Simulated assay, not measured.
Amino acid sequence: MPSRRNSARDRARRELGQNFLIDRDVARRMADLLDPSPVPVVELGAGRGAITRELARTGRPITAVELDPHWADELRGKWPRVRVIRGDMLEFRFPDAPHAVVGNLPFGITTAVTRRLLDTRCWSEAVLLVQWDVARKRAAGGNQLTAQWSPWYEFRLCGRVSARSFRPVPAVDGGVLRILRRAGPLVPFGELGRYQRFVEAVFTGRGRGLGEIVRNVTGCRVRDLPALPRDLTAEGWARLYTETT
Score class of each variant (00 low, 15 high):
L67C: 06
E66I: 12
R9V: 09
V214M: 08
A46L: 13
D32E: 15
G108D: 01
D231W: 05
A64I: 12
R93P: 04
L192E: 08
G207H: 05
I62M: 04
R13F: 11
G211Q: 13
R13W: 10
A46N: 11
D35I: 14
P168M: 00
S162W: 05
G190T: 02
R14P: 00
E91T: 14
D133I: 08
V84D: 07
E91H: 13
R160V: 03
E54K: 00
E200L: 06
V169G: 00
R197C: 04
R24C: 06
M1K: 08
L180Q: 07
A171M: 02
V176I: 15
E235R: 11
R60H: 12
G49L: 14
R29G: 13
D173A: 09
S3N: 04
R221T: 13
R182E: 05
R53M: 14
W71G: 00
E43G: 12
A97M: 09
L75G: 06
V199I: 10
R138F: 15
L105G: 02
R53L: 15
L75W: 07
G205N: 03
L21W: 11
I62K: 10
A112M: 09
V134P: 00
R197K: 12
P95K: 08
L128H: 04
V84S: 10
G174W: 01
P170K: 01
A238E: 01
P226Y: 05
F107T: 00
G59V: 02
V127K: 06
L105E: 01
